[in-house]
Design a protein around this nucleic acid. Structure first.
Ligand SMILES: [Zn+2]
Length: 571
DNA sequence: CGTGTTTGACCCGCGC
DNA sequence: GCGCGGGTCAAACACG
């Protein structure tokens, strides 16, 4: 069964030419050329099309028809008619005027009239409010949509901060959602997190891929090109012999400016997530295609290699492997950055991983803090199901050792594990994370930082919930989506989040090193992972359509769970 | 027939 | 230079 490694084939015959052709045969997967913009087709098409309970078959290809109509500007623009919110009408028929009996007590009549007038006034007011509410919801939706993008970009900015010069490659990704504001570019050395946020946004939209290098979108978050997995730079070569790209890797980075410490050519960030799961693979909202499997040497369990198939040239890869000691722990390692729009269900994970990667690459010190802050956001929300993460604390460990700097997000910590910090660390002894766990700058063998049960907005998927409350009707088709949407919406909606984030980020950027920003969630942490029963071995198990929009309340209601306190402690 | 998985071959960096 | 090991390719299959 196992792959009988019979490598050492140095005596192989080089038949490059043939290979290239062969590659072509691979069709979809190995496009040698890809139009930059072409990749980022209308993102809503997919939403509209993928409605059948599975995200598959995204209509990215529809771009060919040159359609790419109005790139979702403003993402939320087309707010669905408030899901029938109008029915809120409080049918108070207060206006009925009772002419009659008024005769007797004139005073009473006047009083009554006043009453009625008041009532009507109230009613009008109410209507107005309802209307306003609807509008707000529309805005909220928009925010929701952009949150992911902004978040990524923000982090990118953070990453590039030291060298404002770098192109904060927009992930054309969802940048398409952003309005076409053509402000200046990234540069903005402003320290204000929010400022940067804005600028990042602006720049992203403004920027048009400078040169054919085209690999930018891929490289950004996770990281530049690097040996293997990296983005197959849209250029012809890339695939022919992806390996070749290695060489081409360094050069592609147009700007001679050598990536500084932050972006060493060879560095490619990886984000691995450890979670308990019985399913063969956690569902993170993306579509993956397995392209290989190998027996890792220190592990009886094979390691599977997957590649994102939501877009023809998406560079994202992931490895899935069970922990040797504890088979119930599934270690998923992500690498790369999606270069295409993602379904809401996948944005959280994508954001988190890319952000983590970005921070990781941005430098030791900052990365830690950043990661800490970052992780405290989406902790458990990373997965939708298949992964049991009934724990409130998460721990992340950075590792810059080895070929790739890696950040490990550990979601397997024991629930009762009182002190997240030390407790979590110790846990490593038992479960022995697959990564090096040694950070150069770190005093200890590893730099784990516990994330105090963040907003456990992971919410239960079973919640029958009022789907109606879901503002974005188009997003609510899938339980996952709705859940994630809710989460994102909630995050984006809560002002405190912004504040906290800003604080955290700024502290990270300013403090440079020894600060630890964590966002604590005081209340409402009800982490509940719906263990989806879809035993389907399918990679992306189509979420059970049964669960309607779970947590819709959170969205429409008051997203109160967001961070309410942002503690910045100096270590 | 198209699409996704399996699995041996291949590629390449790295340590010795 | 060799051997090792991680990672990827792609022909052969399996599946619906
Ligand atoms: Zn992708």
């Amino acid at each position: 069964m196992e792959t009988k490694p019979e490598r050492h084939r140095h005596d192989r015959v080089h038949e490059e030419g043939g290979e290239d052709d062969a590659t072509m045969a691979h069709g979809a997967l190995s496009l040698h050329h890809r139009g930059a913009a072409a990749l980022f087709g209308p993102r809503h098409d997919e939403e509209a099309a993928g409605r059948r309970g599975e995200i598959r078959e995204v209509d990215f290809f529809s771009r060919d028809s040159g359609a790419r109509r109005q790139q979702d500007d403003g993402g939320g623009r087309r707010v669905p008619p408030g899901g029938g919110r109008d029915d809120v009408n409080i049918g108070l028929d207060l206006l009925t005027t009772g002419t009659a009996a008024a005769a007797s007590a004139g005073e009473e009549v006047t009083a009554a009239k006043n009453h009625k007038m008041e009532a009507s006034a109230v009613e009008t007011e109410l209507r107005r409010v309802v209307d306003e509410n609807r509008q707000l919801r529309g805005i909220l939706e928009e925010l929701t949509r952009n949150y992911g993008t902004l978040y990524q970009q923000l982090l990118q900015v953070t990453q590039h901060h030291p060298h404002q010069h770098q192109h904060p490659d927009l992930m054309n990704n969802q940048s398409s959602l952003l309005p076409h504001t053509h402000l200046n570019t990234m540069g903005a050395p402003n320290s204000s997190a929010t400022r940067q946020l804005l600028e990042a946004r602006a720049s992203s939209t403004a920027r048009t891929r400078p040169d054919a290098g085209a690999e930018d979108e891929a490289s950004d978050g996770a990281g530049e090109a690097s040996p293997s997995l990296s983005n197959n730079g849209g250029n012809n070569n890339s695939d022919g012999k992806r390996k070749m790209s290695q060489d081409g890797t360094a050069p592609p980075r147009e700007n001679g400016e050598q990536a500084s410490s932050a972006e060493l050519p060879g560095r490619k960030a990886r984000v691995s997530v450890r979670a308990r799961s019985e399913a063969p693979m956690i569902s993170d909202g993306c579509q993956w295609r397995k392209y290989g499997q190998k027996m890792a040497k220190g592990n009886p369990c094979p390691r599977a290699y997957y590649r994102c198939t939501m877009a023809v040239a998406c560079p994202v890869r992931k490895q899935v492997q069970r922990c040797a000691e504890d088979k119930s722990i599934l270690v998923t390692t992500y690498e790369g950055h999606h270069n295409h729009p993602l379904p809401p269900a996948a944005t959280t994970m994508a954001n988190t991983t890319s952000a983590a990667a970005a921070m990781l690459l941005s430098g030791p010190a900052t990365s830690r803090d950043g990661a800490a802050a970052l992780l405290s956001h989406h902790p458990a929300a990373l997965f939708h199901h298949h992964a049991s993460i009934p724990y409130a604390s998460t721990m992340a460990t950075l590792s810059a050792s080895a070929p790739f700097p890696t950040i490990t997000l550990d979601l397997t910590q024991a629930p009762g594990g009182g002190a997240p910090g030390s407790g979590g660390l110790l846990a490593h002894g038992l479960q022995r994370p697959p990564v090096g766990m040694v950070h150069p700058a770190a005093a200890g063998p590893a730099m784990p930082f516990a994330v105090p049960s963040p907003l456990a907005m992971f919410l239960p998927q079973r919640a029958p919930a009022a789907a109606a409350a879901m503002p974005a009707g188009l997003v609510a088709r899938q339980p996952q989506q709705s859940v994630m949407e809710t989460v994102t919406a909630a995050i984006a909606a809560d002002p405190n989040f912004t504040t906290a984030l800003a604080a955290a980020i700024s502290s990270v950027m300013a403090g440079g090193g020894a600060q630890q920003a964590q966002l604590a969630t005081p209340r409402g942490s009800n982490i509940g992972i719906a263990e989806e029963a879809s035993g389907g071995a399918g990679t992306t198990a189509p979420a059970a359509p049964t669960t309607a929009a779970a947590g819709a309340h959170a969205a429409s209601g008051s997203p109160r769970f967001a961070t309410q306190s942002c503690t910045t402690s100096t270590t």
